[in-house]
């Protein structure tokens, strides 16, 4: 911390020390009001320019995707065959597609699906991964089997399996939950189930180290139960690796969803997502190449911003780097 941050000593905390002349220098440091960990993290995060820009960009993309339809209230499914394949104009800033649907409205609708798939799948993978990681790290008896399970999952060829899962469970889930709901559940579940392994490994490693620390011993010696130790002492301390893998998880989930849509095994055609829009636009690549550009750019920018955000978070949450 620099001298500028040094705050006026709190009179209530140390009345005697401030009264002593000459002792003000070293004591002044000691009597600083406590800074919370998150304030330090935020200070470090601010210095990472890429992460700051990435964070702002990601918030902007999410906001425009969810709040944009209130401003730009054209129905993304409204077909206007007379205005098809139009270039950018005031009425349609991103142009229209082969059925005359407004591309800007479709981009927002597609973004809602893509971003919500990304966030939900990330949450699922995170909960699964943290749970398995914490349990494997904390209970020695479960460590072996759970880590072998993780290794098995890591050895599965994921993209082919995802494709197979898409093919197999599409019909039953569509029948059970309706077309859109069913495919949403299917995609989120299959991405979540196939991407929890890195989180589990990182969390397990951290828990293994934390378990041997004195504060856990202290907690145990006053009779704290295992559940309480995990929720109260272990989980808050493994929060930083979990947060970093959360940001990276959003990026992977969005890319995977788009890849599935691009291969024609994701959302149905009339249900826009960024990947699906990109896939549809490749048919008109020669005539209207700009139509490929918008969804591709949206995917890339979102993932790029999330990646930078994760990079900055990793630096900010690492106490060894912080303050340097």
């Amino acid at each position: 911390m620099t001298d500028k941050d040094r705050l006026v000593p709190d009179e209530g905390l140390a009345p005697a020390s401030t009264a002593l002349p000459g002792a003000a220098g070293p004591l002044e440091e000691l009597t600083q009001p406590p800074r919370s960990q998150w304030l330090d993290v935020w200070d470090q995060f601010k210095t990472h320019r890429g992460a700051l820009i990435g964070g702002i960009l990601f918030v902007a993309i999410v906001a425009s995707v969810y709040l944009g339809p209130f401003v730009w209230d054209i129905d993304p499914t409204k077909i206007n065959i007379r205005a098809r394949n139009e270039g950018p104009s005031l009425a349609h800033p991103f142009g229209t597609d082969q059925l005359g649907r407004d591309m800007l409205a479709r981009m927002m609708a597609g973004g809602q699906t893509s971003v919500s798939v990304g966030i939900t799948a990330m949450l699922l993978a995170l909960i699964l991964g943290s749970f398995i990681g914490v349990v494997a790290g904390f209970f020695r008896r479960l460590d072996g089997p759970l880590m072998r399970l993780t290794d098995l999952f890591l050895a599965l060829p994921l993209l082919p399996l995802l494709l197979v899962m898409m093919l197999l469970f599409r019909e039953p889930l569509n029948a059970a939950f309706g077309l859109e709901q069913g495919i949403f559940i299917l995609i989120v579940a299959s991405i979540g189930i196939t991407s929890w392994m890195p989180t589990a490994r990182i969390v397990r490693g951290d828990v293994l180290a934390l378990k041997e620390r004195e504060f856990v011993l202290a907690a145990r010696s006053i009779g704290t139960t295992n559940t309480r130790i995990i929720t109260r002492h272990i989980l808050p301390n493994v929060l930083s690796p979990i947060m970093v893998s959360a940001t990276l998880g959003i990026a992977t989930a969005i890319i995977t969803e788009s890849a599935l849509s691009f291969l024609g095994l994701g959302f149905p055609p009339d249900f826009p997502t960024w990947g699906r829009l990109l896939f549809d636009a490749t048919d008109y690549l020669q005539q209207y190449p700009e139509r490929v550009f918008w969804p591709g750019m949206a995917i890339s920018l979102t993932v790029l911003s999330v990646n930078y955000l994760g990079d900055g978070l990793r630096d900010a949450l690492d106490p060894r780097i912080r303050g340097r």
């Binding site: 990026a251 890319i255 788009s258 890849a259 691009f262 990947g275 990109l278 896939f279 490749t282 690549l285 490929v292 550009f293 591709g296 750019m297 995917i299 890339s300 920018l301 993932v303 790029l304 990646n307």
Partner: peptide
């Protein structure tokens, strides 16, 4: 990392 192959390829 961020540009998926189905976009960079098409591009």
């Amino acid at each position: 990392f961020s540009v998926p192959p189905f976009f960079s390829g098409v591009l």
